[in-house]
Design a protein around this nucleic acid. Structure first.
Lengths: 237, 237
DNA sequence: AAGTGGTCTAGACCACGGA
DNA sequence: CCGTGGTCTAGACCACTTA
């Protein structure tokens, strides 16, 4: 299983083995870096090389300045299913939570304009939120919403799922019309909140409402932690 | 655009800007690490931190012991489309190529057994290949094939698309039935060939043949370089 | 043979978390 | 306050590529 001849790969394998064997169960906090590096007879730099590579593979995660932890089971996310975060997470026996960072009317960037098919200089609602599973931040989402369809949206309680607000207050139901997976390229704002370097992946989802014209109402950028998500989908038949 | 206060983030931003502005066109070889680190008034370690983070975002790539390069435009890959690598790449005006690493009858691992719904101890064909775009390795694929449907497959010319072999020699056409995206977790064999640490993402595809029983004929594990692919797909309507 | 990236050492200071 | 992770320095040796 990839022993490798380099130190950091040997350390990687050793930690990997401990995790897969169950000796280090999910959620366990690893010993301090200085202690670990001494145990392996190396320096912190090399040890961190090994830990970073495990992080990129989603086997461990870090909490800023608190330490390294063994990753829990990944959430499975199927973007083709027309459900929401809370339903999906609860369905897998985990505890979902949403925290609002900000909600405001902002000028649409060129990119958002195109995505929502809006004329130039249109302001849009931007909602920035964090999503947690079992108390841990696993996702940063940025929603851009066409304000024409949702006047006064900012006065609503944005801690609840947007889909609930759309349905309850605007009688709007939607479908996800397409998604794009960016294997890379974490947004700066997301990086600030997720506090990860390589351990995240991006996803773009757009939605249309179910009226006759099927207009685009919303698009969002989702930045998931690598250790927190497995994306799965069925192909078109 | 994420200046950051740390050195490596400043360097990151600087390089990022140069690339996005077009001052460093796709394919450009960056100056040697020692020279770059001196230019930025820092050490190689810090410079490499910046480069690695750009690699994780797919903006640059490395060729083992040859240097760092600005990434070309990404290939767009839609896993729900029932096409193959060569068609897809040529359709985007790029030059595809396939190299066979090995093809053999091997004992199925437990995982493969389950995926192909085979009884225990069944041997399967394993085909390992590299795929290149414009001379550059961007993908490592491992195919596991149910030998019951393709007797003598190893005698075929495996440089050509498997789909062509299936159709020409076995009168079999297939659909992709599902795929899974692993945002992380590069396979060891793949790592050997792709020579990347964080710059890759995995994909699992299974296929069924078009006969009345629609049996699983094949599954493959694809490991893409992060800088080489954008995955996109349409949701179920 | 020279230059380069891949890896590693043995330290250091800072800012933040937790007691 | 101390211990921790986050960041950084100024070197080093090796294996490989390139000329």
């Amino acid at each position: 299983m990839g022993q490798g001849r380099n130190q950091y790969q040997i350390i990687r394998s050793a930690l990997c083995e401990q995790i897969e064997s169950g000796a280090l169960p999910a959620g366990t906090k690893l010993p301090p870096e200085r202690q670990l590096s001494e145990s392996f007879g190396t320096t912190r730099v090399t040890l961190r090389e090994a830990l970073s590579s495990l992080e990129a593979d989603g086997m461990v995660y870090r909490e800023d300045r608190r330490g390294w932890f063994v990753s829990p089971e990944r959430i499975v996310y199927d973007p083709t299913v027309n459900t929401n975060f809370h339903t999906m997470v609860k369905g897998q026996g985990r505890m979902p939570e949403t925290r609002l960072i900000s909600a405001a009317l902002v000028p649409a960037t060129t990119k958002i304009q195109k995505l929502l098919q809006l004329p130039p200089l249109t302001p849009v609602y931007r909602v920035q939120r964090l999503r947690l599973v079992d108390q841990r931040t696993v996702l940063y989402v940025e929603n851009y919403i066409n304000p024409e369809y949702f006047p006064g949206l900012l006065d609503q309680d944005l801690q609840q799922p947007l889909s609930d607000i759309y349905r309850t207050h605007y009688s709007t139901r939607y479908s996800k019309v397409n998604f794009r997976l960016y294997p890379v390229g974490i947004h700066d704002e997301a990086a600030t909140h997720l506090k990860v370097t390589s351990g995240s992946s991006g996803l773009l989802v757009t939605r249309i409402n179910h009226d006759k014209k099927k207009r685009l109402i919303d698009c969002d950028f989702e930045y998931w932690r690598q250790d927190a998500i497995v994306i799965t989908a069925q192909a078109r038949k």
